[in-house]
Design a protein around this nucleic acid. Structure first.
Lengths: 413, 413
DNA sequence: AGCTTTTTTTCGAGCTTCGAAAAAATAATC
DNA sequence: GATTATTTTTTCGAAGCTCGAAAAAAAGCT
């Protein structure tokens, strides 16, 4: 806001605009880009011709748009071989990496089960480094230069997206994954919160209502949230990634994994539902991990009829409803996607959730609030990471123009 | 984000940048503006010479910066006669209007007491129109053209800042004040929430910690909030102006003025403290209005020793603490200024507030969170309105250049 | 084969910013 | 008091960008 626009910024910004238009629209013609960006035909022609010459865009081969009068439009698409990115997702007992080409297609992927809770710090770091090394040396990336690595983790990252500050999946904190991986491979790295990446992915999926303002809520062992406001990912002033799960539902209430009492998570996390369904006191120590099929069985029992299981899900719905409603009081209502294993039991949660939300200030139009379901969080997180890394390349590297002719990345460790 | 930058946008933006630099810095020299904006000397020279020729800026007369070697810097300041704005603030039983010159100085003001709760809709609207008419015809504005009117009201405005949707100060809602006043006077009008304007004012006061992220909380009959994030006023997706006062503190708790139960306001608003201090049930109907001196007396009693008054303030602090802490879980902690009559009793509220906030996720660094006090809300709201309207002129009118030579506004109704 | 329609490129004009040099205005020095 | 040094501000030509209009390209229609 405080810095002026220089003359050469202009080209950079407009190049970024054209690339963004292509990334968003699939295969727009130059004329369509003209309409999207509001720039003139001449400008779009000049910029896209540059981008094609630099190997960033290419003309689409297909010519399916028959039966129209004049010169046919020729669609522009991202050149898949212009670059590649790596995504790494670290979650409870699971490490996943994938190679993605510049157009966003998955080239290869790999998953490993780890006992993250008990693994020593060094071993955990080493697993990640080895995984990245294998992916980089894999032949799927032989013809690509990898320009970015996006690392997503459950928990909080610092505001510069360089260090994992805290996570519930291991007792070790303050791990500077960005520095570690950059030193090892010489490729820029960003560290991001998993729920934020879910939100980014939803935004790119392009559903109408997930454009400007929406929320992604992870219902898993813990509760997480990613928020998009005004079309941009909202990260708080310290980039903690929205600790929605630790909003206070009931002062001095049930015991939470975080050590405090009354958090939403202590009512709606897997362990909380499990604890409540088994009739345990709400101050019972949270279980470390509960397998997905165990939660599925719990949900089945709850669906079968009234009982402690049903009540546990209702309590979860109430906690989520009041907290979402309180959030909506400040943020204003927005569509919500529930992600993760808990989302498969949304039918059990929804009635109590809607009842609770209706009693809050943000719930005045409670019935018009839309909820969506997306059971598989892993894919969503990977998608978000990929888009995050790719748009970085678009804006910070390819928009510059001259700098495109970078030396090919070194793939040695 | 989706629209490209045209060549003529460049000048517009850089002109806006120069005007903003002058408005912010007081009386910067061209060289200082060069440093602030990052533009070249030549560009700043050209732009400021234009702005001076158009009567938007002028060279400062004072030359106090002695004792330096070379050619002395000559400061640039806003030309006070370039334009003027009107601010109108409507709050419980009070209507205030002020005329402000382009440099931000108050030219004249007027205050009227009204019984807003009982006044019919037509009469209320008429009071506002008459007030504006008197201000516009006043000779203090004889040599100024009024380019904007900013109308602040307790309650919610629509997202286009045109209609007052709902307010606690009168039973009438959906009053299109912007259209009414524009039709009457032919001057563009914006309708804003009072707490948002408090936040805008704090931002312009220029204290270091009120730059990028901070919160203004109005402690009055009701509880309101204005939030600035990333240096910009945050208004929710529907511009409801952050109904923080109606976050749920205790599900099914005390009765709130809004008809729901358990809202923060039902514990921390004037009526809630009064109700609690008098030992009334928490479901007792909220009082319509409580004079400031009555609240002062309550606070004195609470300071005198332990008793129901002291407890009432503690309950208020607890409610505010938990809610702020929950908000901080999502937004991340930020400095807070408490504004209004309740802020004068902050010494009574603070201990319980800090205790509560320390038990929430957002309160991990509870002791490092800074709280400030600003008892007089009226002045703050007026200041915010003025800056809002003035920056509108800066960006939407004066940044354009050619359009500056607008015909003088017609002052007739 | 010629005409119409639509997309894309080309080309000169008009702005804008920038860097370097010149001009302006003052303090320091001799 | 005249000269020199220093800092601010303006001037001027060069380079780059976008735009509109016109031309070129590539189809369908008659």
């Amino acid at each position: 806001m405080t810095v002026g626009i220089r003359h050469d910024d202009l080209r950079r910004r407009n190049r970024a605009m054209v690339i963004a238009a292509v990334r968003r629209s699939g295969e727009p013609s130059r004329t369509e880009i003209t309409a999207i960006t509001g720039l003139s035909h001449s400008t779009i022609s000049a910029i896209s011709s540059d981008l094609i010459a630099e190997g960033i865009l290419r003309e689409g081969r297909s010519e399916p748009t028959a039966s129209k009068r004049g010169r046919p439009q020729v669609g522009l698409q991202l050149d898949p071989s212009a670059a590649a990115v790596l995504t790494v997702v670290l979650s409870l007992n699971l490490l996943t990496a994938a190679a993605i080409d510049y157009s966003g297609k998955v080239l290869a992927e790999e998953t490993r089960r780890l006992d993250t809770l008990s693994l020593p710090r060094e071993a955990l770091v080493n697993e990640c480094v080895q995984m990245v090394r294998r992916r980089l040396q894999d032949q799927s990336l032989a013809r690509h230069r990898v320009l970015r690595i996006a690392f997503a983790v459950q928990g909080t990252a610092d505001s510069h997206a360089r260090t994992m500050l805290w996570t519930p999946i291991t007792p070790h904190g303050d791990i500077p994954f960005a520095d570690i991986l950059e030193n090892a491979f010489g490729i820029p790295v960003i560290v991001e919160n998993d729920c934020n990446m879910m939100a980014v992915a939803l935004r790119w999926r392009g559903t109408d209502r997930y454009r400007d303002d929406f929320i992604a809520v992870l219902l898993s062992h813990g509760i997480g949230m990613g928020i998009v406001l005004n079309g941009e990912l909202f990260i708080g002033t310290q980039s903690s990634g929205g600790e929605f799960g630790h909003m206070i539902h009931r002062p001095n209430g049930a015991r939470c994994r975080c050590g405090r009492h009354g958090c939403v998570e202590a009512y709606a996390g897997n362990y909380a539902i499990w604890r409540s369904a088994h009739g345990l006191d709400e101050n019972t120590e949270p279980a470390a991990d509960i397998p997905d099929d165990e939660m599925q069985r719990l949900a089945e029992k709850a669906r079968a009829g009234v009982g402690p299981e049903r009540e546990a899900y209702e309590r979860a719905g109430t906690a989520l409803g009041y907290s979402l409603g309180s959030l909506f009081a400040v943020i204003d209502p927005a569509p919500v996607t529930f992600v993760g294993i808990g989302a498969t039991a949304f039918d059990l949660i929804e009635p109590a959730l809607r009842r609770a939300i209706a009693q809050t200030a943000g719930g005045q139009h409670s019935n018009s609030i839309v909820f969506d379901i997306e059971p598989k969080e892993q894919m969503l997180i990977r998608e978000g990471c990929a888009m995050r890394a790719l748009t970085f390349i678009d804006q910070e590297i390819f928009a510059l123009g001259g700098a495109t002719a970078l030396a090919p990345q070194l793939l040695e460790a």
